[in-house]
Design a protein around this nucleic acid. Structure first.
Length: 291
DNA sequence: GTTCCCCTGCGG
DNA sequence: CCGCAGGGGAAC
């Protein structure tokens, strides 16, 4: 669910509530593959630590702890990182929300999907990591320990050079859309922004990567930067689950060109937006604007 | 390369 | 009931 702009929005809003606060106690749910580090060890290791910085690598967040250890987080599809004082209604689905009384909508109470809770010595707002589908990940890295997931990431999507993308496309027969989703080529792009950037670049998502020209790679890189920056500026996309750590919705969904607009008119040429499945992922494009 | 899986909930 | 979901990894 969350892609680079949603993760960056999360990072910016969570870092200040984490910085320099001593963790007093940690609560977790039962062991599951959500916990790459067993929850019992996580509880022991995090207590008493302070966070020095919160960095983002692609869709991963990495908290630098004062012990030299690092806490690696991935939000998966439905992961939400927020504080106990966040406005909570958007943390639930619209139907679940509608069933709540106004009083119940006031504050979020940790539920079965709230897998990690940090309490702080200062008694201030707690940090919650909630993830309904548990595709998210938590891992504690010891000092100097490298995580293979981070090690294999390509350059950040905001930093990749057109020439690097062009090199990655050569000899690859995969669809250019699938290549953009490959975190080893560039890190941070997911289904929404791959579709959006390819629309802005005028490149058809199903085109074989090695058929994309150097000039088109330049356009794709420019389009990626434009759409990712704009999405960060608008607080990300809140199409189904994403909610910023303060409970607010993002607004990029109001500006999207093709994603989840199948059957609607292209905002540029009025042709009908198409939807096709490509590598098990829904793909949206305008056959008039994209070649 | 595709196919399937992890998991839960929503909407038709 | 079924198909769908913004991620990622492993197995054919």
């Amino acid at each position: 669910m969350p892609e680079l702009p949603e993760v960056e929005t999360t990072r910016r809003r969570i870092e200040p509530v984490l910085l320099d606060r001593e963790i007093a106690a940690v609560h977790t749910t039962r062991p599951s593959y959500f916990f790459l580090t067993p929850p019992a060890r996580l509880r022991r290791a995090l207590a008493g630590q302070r966070t020095l910085a919160l960095a983002r690598h692609g869709k991963y967040l990495l908290a630098q702890l004062d012990s030299g250890q690092q806490l690696l987080l991935h939000l998966g599809m439905t992961g939400q990182l927020f504080t106990s004082n966040a406005a909570s209604p958007r943390l639930l689905s619209a139907t679940a929300r509608a069933a709540l009384s106004p009083e119940q909508q006031q504050a979020f109470k940790p539920d079965v999907h709230t897998h990690l809770r940090l309490r702080f010595e200062d008694g201030g707002p707690e940090l919650y990591f909630r993830d309904v589908r548990k595709f998210g990940k938590v891992r504690l890295l010891d000092r100097g320990q490298l995580d293979p997931r981070l090690a294999r990431l390509g350059p950040d999507a905001l930093a990749i050079k057109a020439e690097a993308l062009f090199r990655a496309t050569s000899s690859r027969k995969v669809a250019i859309k699938s290549l953009l989703l490959d975190q080893g080529v560039l890190a941070g792009v997911g289904n929404i922004y791959a579709d959006e950037a390819l629309f802005l670049a005028g490149v058809h998502p199903e085109r074989a990567a090695h058929r994309v020209t150097r000039e088109e790679c330049r356009r794709i890189v420019r389009s990626l930067r434009r759409v990712l920056r704009r999405a960060i500026d608008t607080g990300g996309s809140s199409i189904s689950d994403f909610v910023a750590p303060d409970g607010a919705d993002g607004h990029y969904q109001d500006e999207r060109w093709v994603y989840a607009r199948a059957g609607n008119a292209c905002r540029r040429c009025r042709a009908t937006i198409q939807r096709r499945v490509l590598g098990q992922r829904s793909t949206h494009f305008c056959a008039g604007c994209q070649r």
